[in-house]
Every structure is written in C-alpha cells, then in structure tokens.
Computed example of a mutant assay.
Amino acid sequence: MTGRPAGTAGLAALVLLQVAVTAAPLALLPVLGLEVARMGAAPAFWTAALLAAPAVTTLAMTPAWPALARRLSLPALVVWTGLLSAASCGLIALAADPLVLLAGRLVQGLAGGGVVLALAFRAAGRSAGRGFSLMQQAVAAGCLIGPVAGGLAFEREGIGALMLAGAGLILLLTLAAARAARGLAAEPEAAPAPAGPRARDWPLLVAGTCGSAGAFAFVAFFPTWASAQDAGLYTPGLIGLLHSLSWVAALLVLPLWARGLDGLSPVLALVLSLVGCGLGYALVPLGLGLSGIVALRVIQGAVYAGQAPALFAAAEAAGPSRTAALARARAGLTVGQLLGPVAAGLALVPLGPSGPLLAAAGLSLAGALALAPSLLARHLPAPPVEADPLRPRSRS
C-alpha cells in the first residue's frame, strides 16, 4: 500500500491534532516552576527534571519506531500517539505531587507525536515540502495558543481543568485523524530495517541538532539579554509579544517554504535557514533599538520556520527508510533542545548577557558548516572522465 493524498477534511483533522498535542504541553511550560512550588516541592530540582523528562523518553523510543511502523498501520500509530498524549494530559491534570507530574511528562515523550504525525503529514501531503510545511504551520499555531491558554488558566487556578479539556479534545481529534489516515502508509514501499545512521546521515543529524540547539539557546537567554539592556522597556509582556511575533511570521511564511522545498534541494533550504538564523541571532546584541529587535524577531521566525521541514525532507531523501530517517531527525532536534541552553549558559559568565546569543549564532552556523561538504558535492559539476588511451576509437 503506497498511500494517497488525503482530502481537505483529512488534512484538517491532522492539523487540529498537531495543534492540540503541541499546545497542551506548552500550556504548562511557562508556569511549570510555579506549579511545582504550589505542590510544596523544590522548584529548581523538579522543574529541571520535568523539563528534561519528555526528551528522555523521546530519545529512548527513537530506535523502536521503524519496528513499530512495520508492525502497526499508520492509523494505529496515530491512535498510539493520541491515546498517550491524552493520558499525559490526564496525569498532569490530576497530579497532586511532582512524581505524578513527572510521569505525565515521561508519557508525553512516549507518545512520539513528532515522529508519527510527521509520517502522517508526509503520507497525506502531495509532496515533502507541502506535507512537512503544513505540519510546521500546525506546530506554530500550537506554540502560539498553548502558552497563552496556560497563563490564563494558571491565573484562575484552572490548569487541571485545562489539561482535562485538552485530553478530551485530543481523543476526539485522534479518532478523526486516524480515520483520515486510513489508506495511507508510513513507508512509500517496503523498506529494509537500517542498522543505524550511515556515514552520509551524520551531517544532517549534526545540522539538525545544532540548529535546534541555537534556537533554544536564543529563546532561553533572550530575556536575560533584554533585561540587561533595559528592564523597564523589555517587560515580560513585551518579551512574550516578540516571541509570539516570531511564530506569527512562521505561520505566514511557511507556504513559501513549502514551494521552495519542492523546487530546491532540501539540503540547500536547510543551509539557508541555518545561516539566516545564525546571522539573526548575532545581530541582536548590536544595539539596534526596539524597532530593530522587532524586525529581527520577525525575520528569525520566518527563516527558522523552514528548518524542521527542510531537515525532515532531506532526511527522507537520504533514505532508505522514511520512518527511521524521521525518527533520527526528531531525535537530533530533541538533543539540540537539551544542549543549546547548556552551551549558552556556559557563555554567560565569560561574555556577559550577549554571550548566549553569540553562542546561539555559532551553533546555528556550525550546523550550516556541517552540511557544506555534502552541499558542494551535490551542486558542483562532476569532473570530466578522461578517455582510455588504449581503447580503440569508433569510426564515424
């Protein structure tokens, strides 16, 4: 079964499910430390553990996805993701102590929405560019909705109710998305089970990890830089607004990325995104004023938007197994989320508030450099083949 492009209703179901499974965890993140403190636990320790928990199970599941994709249909995988995502929300909603909260966060990583829904969008779309870019649009929408909903719910002591509502919504959307995925296949055809990443896969994995690390380093330490510049101007509300502007820009520009991915090499598109992000991060400390920072945050959102779709499209093109390639790409993004803030934090003391932003720029540019040899090999003309002097010439 090779699959077929899904109709409008099927794509809408996938989009709404992606929005929900993105928004629900993000509703908790801005108030995670405050929620832990309400439970009477040590905020620093438990907040760090809770932040890292989904990454642990996401990485642990990475080698299992190819085998699961061979044993389960794509609709069954969508149900897996939806049920575990809803269970995660339910555990978080009912948590009265940090251990239950930790269990909910661990289940979130087991759900594997970043892999399963990527497979579903790719199978439902008419091309890699359209499928992965539409998925990223849904992610951007979830990133906009989740923190706002979580902040409002926390102020009204309604995080638990919000999470239960999210669990119910995810279950309903899972049924619709699984129905839409009937007739679609995770793999375009039977693919061999790869033993692991090959030598030519490593530049992509490094690029994805570095790009993710740079983005999360920047987001984690931009408030520190902004407060050091002018704490009266850069209030938490303004910083949140600037962050939202980046996601709005991503939503608007992703259709252009879709066309570019289908018309250009995904590797070239990934390099352009990494370079654009690196330059955007590096320009922030130059003191461009509020209008300059607004413009940079919009540009950063626009160029970062194409990074994950380009990575997924390039990983798929590298083959041979789509599931294994996307799982490894997702793992690289997850590792970057963990390493980026740590690397930026190490730059804070010797370089001051601008140090983490420069570290973010360096990480993103390092990802582009990792792809330079393969990019040159793809686009430089092959050397001419010299004629064999011993071979007799044909008579014409």
Rank of each mutant, 00 (worst) to 15 (best):
T22L: 10
S244I: 08
F312R: 11
M39K: 07
V303L: 07
L16G: 00
F121Q: 08
A96H: 12
P392R: 06
G232N: 10
A302R: 04
L84A: 10
G125Q: 00
Q337F: 06
P63Y: 10
V271S: 14
L242P: 07
A295H: 09
L175I: 08
P285R: 09
A231Y: 05
L296S: 07
A153W: 09
T224Y: 10
M135Y: 07
V100H: 08
A140T: 15
G292W: 05
G319E: 07
V19N: 00
P30C: 05
V303M: 03
T2P: 15
R378C: 09
I239T: 15
G151R: 09
P203G: 13
G332I: 12
A55T: 14
V115Y: 04
T22D: 00
L171K: 03
V206Q: 00
L371W: 09
W80F: 06
P356W: 05
A295E: 10
G340Q: 05
R179V: 01
A95P: 11
V342M: 12
L363I: 09
P75Y: 04
E189C: 10
A176I: 03
I299Q: 10
V335G: 01
Q300V: 15
A93G: 13
L256Y: 05
L390W: 06
P350S: 12
G142I: 12
A186P: 12
R122H: 12
M163P: 00
G40T: 13
L351W: 14
L311W: 08
C143V: 15
A111F: 03
P54K: 03
V78P: 04
G112T: 00
A325V: 04
V36G: 06
G40I: 06
R156K: 08
V385L: 14
L238F: 01
P389V: 01
G292L: 02
P266V: 10
A123C: 10
S88T: 13
M1T: 14
P203K: 05
T58I: 03
P43N: 01
W257A: 13
A86F: 06
A193D: 15
L94Y: 06
A382D: 12
G362P: 01
A93M: 07
W46Q: 06
H243Y: 11
A368S: 12
R200K: 05
A161F: 04
V342G: 11
A55N: 03
P266M: 00
L290M: 06
A372L: 15
V116L: 05
R105H: 12
L59Y: 02
A9C: 08
G340R: 08
A250W: 08
L77C: 14
G237I: 03
R259A: 15
V15Q: 01
L28Q: 12
Q229E: 15
L84Q: 04
V342Q: 04
G280L: 01
S246R: 04
H379E: 15
